[in-house]
């Protein structure tokens, strides 16, 4: 079975231990073992929401706040630059959601 890892009991996201496709049932390893249906494809090392998270709510990993939700996030969906923002680093919100490549210096390449 595809697996993801929840580090701390307070976490509302888990990390994929191998890439998995939409519709797959994931085994959630860690302090609260359970299962979760993945609603979209998620890559190795990326995060999946363990529960529904409202706009502005904390995203918690390692038992600590790693930022806030910028839109409603349904349990089982991918959590990344498109729906999670740092509380400190404003530039990260401008990066390409898939590759992480900067978009604010694109004009310098022409």
């Amino acid at each position: 079975m595809n697996r993801c890892f929840q580090i701390h009991p307070a976490d509302n996201v888990a990390t994929l231990l191998a890439a998995a496709d939409a519709g797959v049932t994931l085994e959630v390893l860690g302090p609260v073992p359970r299962r979760l249906v993945l609603r979209e494809s998620v890559a190795l090392g990326h995060k999946v929401a363990l529960e529904d998270i409202a706009t502005g709510e904390s995203i918690v990993k390692f038992g600590a706040r790693i930022g806030h939700a910028t839109q409603p996030i349904a349990g089982g969906t991918w959590v990344h630059l498109h729906n999670l923002a740092s509380d400190l680093d404003l530039r990260s919100a401008t990066l390409d959601h898939q590759s992480g490549a900067p978009t604010d210096t694109s004009s310098a390449y022409v």
């Binding site: 994929l16 090392g45 995060k47 930022g67 959590v79 509380d87 990260s92 992480g100």
Partner: peptide, 12 residues
Amino acid sequence: PGNFAGGLTTIE
């Protein structure tokens, strides 16, 4: 960028 592509979203 490589951190983001690898699944890390924020500096925190």
